[in-house]
Design a binder for these strands. Sequence first.
DNA 1: ATGCCTTCTGGGAGAAGA
Length: 274
Amino acid sequence: MRLATWNVNSVIARVPRLVDWLGATRPDVVCLQETKCTADAFPYDEVRPLGYEVAAHGDGRWNGVALLSRVGLTDVTRGLSNEPGFPAPEARAIGATVGGIRVWSLYVPNGRALEDPHYYYKLEWLSALQQYTADALAGDPDLALALVGDFNIAPTDADNGDPAVVPGFSTHVSQPERDAFAALESAGLTDVVRPLVPGGFTYWDYKRLRFPKNEGMRIDFILGSHAFSNAVTGATIHRNERKGEAPSDHVPVVVDLDLTSPEEEDDDRPMIFG
DNA sequence: ATGCCTTCTGGGAGAAGA
């Protein structure tokens, strides 16, 4: 199974690129963020012919998340049960069961500026996500759970190549944000891409030649429980999607999984005859 | 330590993003 995440910065504006990329990459599951449209306005007719079921969650002008799947799409949940709002809850989380995985497409609040009300909203939102994760894995430690999307946090200094993002002055690199990211890992999740792709960014600001100068940030992640992480066989960051006509400012992140069940794995054990 | 880019709405100029 191939699973991907992509902050498309308007799914309607990105339809030509999205359709081309889906055809070339053939992911089974896609988590989209910043769709910037209501669920009614999602471009279903452009995506369904490629074989995908679609679940969308949108506010309209801002935010918006969606899930595409060719391996089933059931038990769709829009929003986290304990999700804070700004002031009302926003369309930043959609979950579903796809191909045996509980997957969430997530768009973590930006934070805007240190000490801004939106910054505290971001931290509260991340706390709610951590609580959900802890509860979900406490209920089923072997759950194949994946938190996928734009976390708006650069967990390490190496993940920040943007000279405008300065520790001590900027969001995305503050210790409370990094602590919140680490808390997700402490709750039982691991970044499944980093061991396979140790370096590289997933976002470059549109302005100031950030992409040509490769002054980007790594802020889009695929975090998995052990049942998910153990199945990962490969990972790629599709840097070329930042090139060409009308790109998003983020690029897709992709993982390949071998979700062979333990029973089937048993069949691969050496046989002893006689 | 910002909004010289992009998107959206609304039918302008402004908000938001990271």
